[in-house]
Amino acid sequence: MIETFRLHQLLRETVQSPYRCLVTRPTGAAIRNRIEQSLETSGCVTALLDFAEVEMLDFSCADEVVAKLLLARGPGERPYFVLSGLHDGQREAVEHVLRHRQLAVAALRDAERAPAVLGCADEDARLAFESVCSDGPADDRALGARLGWAPERAARAIEDLAWLRLAQVSDGTLRPVPLP
C-alpha cells in the first residue's frame, strides 16, 4: 500500500558521485524515470519519497523529481505522493517549484506525526487536510461541523484537496492517504 523511494539510494544508483547532492535536471529526470518505472508495477496507494541522507536539493532537481511526478497525474489518480526527511533548505526548493507550478504535496516532518502541506494549497484546504489527518475521514457536513464552516465551504475545500491530490475522496468523503 505504501512504497518508499529512498532518494539517496536512487541518486547513488544514477550518478557516479561520492556526494549526496540531488542537483541538475538530467539527474532529476533520471531519478523520476526510475520511480515511474517502479510505479508501473507497484499498485501502491502512497509513494513515499524519502529525502533523508540527501544533503542538498536544488530547484532544477526538485522540479524534475517532485513537480513532474505530480504533474503526470490527474485528480484521484494513484499513487498519492508524500515526502519525508526534508530539511529546511530542501523544503524551500520544493515549496518554490510547487508554488510556481500551482501544485501541492504532503510532507512528513520527522518530529511530527501529522504531515504538512507544501505548495500552493489555500488556507481552507490546509485546515481541511489537517482535520482529516488528525481526526479521520469526513464528508462536507462532518468537516464543516469540525471546522465551524458551512457545508458549501467544506465541500470546496474537499474539492481543492482532491484536485491537488492531497487526500482521497470517494462518495463525497475525504480520507487521508495511507501514511507510515
Binding site: Q16, P18, Y19, V23, T27, M56
Partner: peptide
C-alpha cells in the same frame, strides 16, 4: 557530472 562534483 562536473556540476555534481563542484557542488559536492
Amino acid at each position: 557530472e562536473d556540476v555534481h562534483d563542484v557542488v559536492g
